[in-house]
C-alpha cells in the first residue's frame, strides 16, 4: 500500500468519548446484574420444582445415590473403554467411506457407472433403515452366513454396522459440501488444465470438507452416543455395564455415571470443533 497511512498511536479520547464510555460501562453493569438475577431465578425455580415433586425422594434414592455411583464407577469406566475404542476406530473409517461414496457420486466417467449406482443404492438403503436394525442384522446375520475368514467377534461385527449406517449419513453431508462449492471454482481449475480428479482432490474437496466440519462433528457426536446401541446384541459397554449394575443392586445411579462418561467425550469434542472452525476461518481471512 502506498500513500500516507493513519496510525492508531498518539490518540487522546475526547471529552464526549470519555462521557460515552462511562455511560456504556454503567449500562453494561446493569445488564450483567439483570442476567445474573434472571438466571438465578429461572434455574433456582426449576431445581425447586424438581426437588419438591412428589416422587423426588424416591428418584434421588434410585438415581442419585453417591455410594452406588462410586461403586459402579470402575465397572462403567472399564466398559466405557469399549465405546471409546469403537468410535475411535469407526470415525476414520466412516469418514473414508462417506468421502468415497460422495466423490463417487460426483464422477462422470462411464467406467464408474456401476460404482455410482452402488453409491446411490447404498446411501438410500442405510440412511432409511434404523441403526439398531443394521446392528442386529450384522451381529446375527453375518455369522449365520458361515463365511470362512469372517470374524465372529461381536465387537467387529457391530463396528461394521455402525460404519455402514453412519457412512451413509456422512456421504450425504460431504456431497452437500461438494455441491456448495461454487461452479466457478471448478471452471477456473479446468481453465488451468487440471483434470476433473485433480480439481476434485485439490480444489473442490478441501473447500467442501472445511464447510461440512460442523455437521460432520454433529454426526460424530451422535455416533459416540450410538455406540450404546451395540449393547442390544450383548456387547459389554458402558450402558450395558450400568444396566447390569442396576439390575443386580436395584439402583439406577450407575446410569448417570454412564451418562457422565458420554458427556465427558462429546462436550469437549463440540468445543474443539468450534475452535478449529473459527481458526480456519480466521486464517483464510488472513487475520
Amino acid at each position: 500500500m502506498t500513500g500516507p497511512t493513519a496510525t492508531a498511536a498518539g490518540w487522546t479520547p475526547s471529552e464526549r468519548q470519555l462521557e460515552r464510555q462511562a455511560v456504556a460501562a454503567r449500562v453494561r453493569r446493569r445488564q450483567r446484574a439483570t442476567a445474573a438475577l434472571i438466571t438465578l431465578v429461572v434455574f433456582g425455580g426449576l431445581a425447586l420444582g424438581a426437588v419438591s415433586s412428589p416422587g423426588w425422594d424416591r428418584f434421588a434414592d434410585t438415581f442419585l445415590d453417591t455410594g452406588h455411583m462410586r461403586a459402579a464407577f470402575p465397572e462403567v469406566r472399564d466398559a466405557f473403554w469399549t465405546n471409546v475404542k469403537m468410535f475411535l476406530i469407526a470415525e476414520p473409517l466412516i469418514l473414508l467411506l462417506g468421502g468415497l461414496v460422495a466423490v463417487t457420486r460426483s464422477t462422470v466417467s462411464p467406467w464408474l457407472t456401476p460404482a455410482r449406482i452402488l453409491a446411490v443404492v447404498y446411501t438410500d438403503l442405510f440412511r432409511g433403515v434404523p441403526t439398531i436394525l443394521v446392528v442386529m442384522v450384522c451381529a446375527f446375520g453375518i455369522p449365520a452366513m458361515q463365511l470362512t475368514g469372517v470374524t465372529n467377534s461381536l465387537f467387529w461385527l457391530t463396528l461394521v454396522a455402525l460404519v455402514l449406517s453412519y457412512g451413509a449419513y456422512v456421504a450425504e453431508v460431504i456431497r452437500a459440501g461438494i455441491e456448495s462449492v461454487h461452479p466457478t471454482q471448478l471452471a477456473s481449475a479446468q481453465a488451468l488444465a487440471l483434470s476433473r480428479g485433480q480439481a476434485m482432490r485439490h480444489v473442490v474437496l478441501p473447500q467442501a470438507l472445511r464447510r461440512v466440519v460442523p455437521p460432520l462433528m454433529n454426526d460424530f457426536v451422535s455416533l459416540q452416543k450410538d455406540t450404546a446401541l451395540i449393547s442390544a446384541v450383548g456387547v459389554m459397554e458402558a450402558l450395558r455395564a450400568a444396566s447390569d449394575y442396576g439390575n443386580y443392586n436395584f439402583d439406577y445411579s450407575a446410569y448417570l455415571v454412564a451418562a457422565a462418561f458420554f458427556l465427558v467425550v462429546t462436550v469437549p469434542l463440540a468445543r474443539l470443533t468450534d475452535w478449529l472452525a473459527a481458526r480456519a476461518a480466521r486464517r483464510e481471512r488472513g487475520r
Binding site: T184, A187, S188, A191, V203, P206, Q207, R210, E284
Partner: peptide, 9 residues
C-alpha cells in the same frame, strides 16, 4: 475471470 476465482483455501 471477472470475479478472480482464486482458490480461497
Amino acid at each position: 475471470f471477472q470475479a478472480y476465482n482464486l482458490f480461497p483455501h
